[in-house]
């Protein structure tokens, strides 16, 4: 079986995987980073979104071996070392942008990239930008509010808010 090595949440991670092992399976089953979820089998729901080399990626859509040598950030790596929530995480809590929590990690990871790439986000941009993430609980209303607030907070923190 191939060996794969990458940096996950700032720490080196190595493991033996089958060629068919998906990045999400490597994260969940081998590294026990179970914050990244699997909600579908067609790359539609976005519960598995992580950042690979700074870009949001559905980790059910790439093989673990494709992440060889990459910097991977999962939801577990988003808050500061002292536990201080990332502004986007804090905004989701403040605006009740989550209910059952299952879509939340992917939703937050997508939102962080969306906010980072787009200064002055509008509601329409947020709704379009989150098209790849399904939530069945919130009706999106509070997620949209949270992402707008989180994006504003991230703007305020720049450049300190290095992930």
């Amino acid at each position: 079986m191939p060996t794969v090595s990458m940096t996950v949440n700032g720490r080196p991670a190595t493991g033996e995987v089958e060629g068919r092992t998906l990045l999400v399976q490597f994260l969940r089953d081998q590294l026990r980073l179970t914050g990244t979820h699997v909600g579908c089998d067609t790359s539609q729901c976005g519960a598995c979104v992580v950042h690979v080399d700074g870009r949001s990626v559905k980790s059910c859509t790439i093989l673990a071996v494709q992440a060889q040598g990459c910097e991977v950030t999962t939801i577990e790596g988003l808050a500061a070392a002292d536990g201080t929530l990332h502004p986007m995480q804090a905004a989701f809590r403040e605006h009740h942008g989550l209910q059952c929590g299952f879509c939340t990690p992917g939703m937050v990871m997508s939102a962080v990239e969306l906010a980072r790439d787009n200064a002055g986000l509008t509601e329409a941009q947020v709704r379009e930008g989150l098209e790849g993430n399904l939530c069945r609980c919130t009706g999106y209303h509070n997620i949209v509010k949270a992402v707008l607030a989180g994006a504003e907070a991230m703007q305020g923190q720049r450049p300190a808010a290095a992930e």
């Binding site: 999962t74 577990e76 929530l85 989701f92 809590r93």
Partner: peptide
């Protein structure tokens, strides 16, 4: 504000899988 949010927002939820 919800007490359960911190674990869900930091990937510490404990779902069956």
């Amino acid at each position: 504000r919800r007490r359960e949010d911190i674990r869900f927002l930091t990937g510490q939820g404990n779902y069956t899988d």
